[in-house]
């Protein structure tokens, strides 16, 4: 346990300080005309949920978003700085910066400051050269292009589901359904993910954002097998 956590003295109003971070589920997948990304919306500081409706999909350009996970402060700062650089290059070079180069711009910061940062991102977007693209950059700054990927604490719960669902030439609707379902499955099992589901579709026409709340239609609820009752045998097994 961390030092400062042990020294907490609630009686005098001193509480352990936890970094505000996005224990997260991020999903991104290519389809035949672009990419779909999906995220949960939980931001927590230790066990406390500081926000239940966070937007972890940050637009960088018309045709590119970045999905953030790790320290909320670090990833917000990196997204801001990278966006600034990309905007300047777009202006001085008079044409859009490719998604690949943008992912490398993100890499520069994530790699150069890897000792100080706790940040990992998915760069997703569409450009005329390569169409829909997803680049995963975990902590440390390794860049890899992915057809389908999950990231964040919830990712471990859905990696297999994504592997079983992805195939070449998915249509937009198929892809959206898979991504939404994956976020639903991950948030159900992962305690650090939850809240609403946010989707973004990026294609040649730009980015479209969607929101699915648990109290409105379209939310990906999960049905698990009803468990056996497990009272001790001498007690009647009814609720």
């Amino acid at each position: 346990m961390r030092d400062e956590k042990r020294k907490a003295i609630p009686a005098i109003g001193f509480y352990p300080q936890e970094e505000i971070s996005t224990g997260t589920t991020l999903i991104a997948m290519e389809y035949n005309g672009g990419v779909v990304v999906g995220t949960d919306s939980r931001t927590s500081a230790g066990s406390f949920i500081t926000s239940r409706a966070t937007n972890k999909i940050t637009p960088i350009t018309e045709n590119m978003v970045v999905c953030r996970s790790g320290s909320a402060a670090d990833t917000q700062a990196i997204a801001d700085i990278a966006k600034y650089h990309i905007d300047v290059y777009t202006m001085t070079e008079n044409k859009p910066v490719t998604i690949y180069r943008s992912s490398q711009i993100f890499r520069q910061f994530l790699y150069n400051y890897r000792e100080q940062l706790s940040a990992s991102v998915l760069v997703a977007g569409w450009d005329a050269e390569l169409g829909g693209q997803v680049y995963a950059i975990p902590i440390g700054g390794f860049v890899s292009r992915q057809r389908s990927t999950a990231s964040g604490s919830g990712s471990t719960f859905v990696q297999g589901f994504l592997d079983s669902q992805w195939r070449p030439d998915l249509t937009l609707d198929e892809c959206k359904a898979i991504v939404k379902q994956a976020v639903g499955l991950a948030t159900f099992r992962d305690g650090s993910s939850g809240g609403v589901v946010r989707l973004a579709v990026i294609d040649k026409t730009g980015s479209k954002f969607e929101l699915f709340r648990p109290d409105k239609p379209g939310f990906p609820f999960v049905q698990t097998p009803t468990p056996h009752l497990s009272f001790p045998p001498h007690i009647e097994q009814v609720l």
């Binding site: 070079e93 690949y100 180069r101 490398q104 711009i105 520069q108 860049v143």
Partner: peptide, 11 residues
């Protein structure tokens, strides 16, 4: 080194 792609001639 920065972008892991060859520099275009215009740049």
């Amino acid at each position: 080194k920065d972008y892991r792609e060859p520099m275009p001639v215009q740049n």
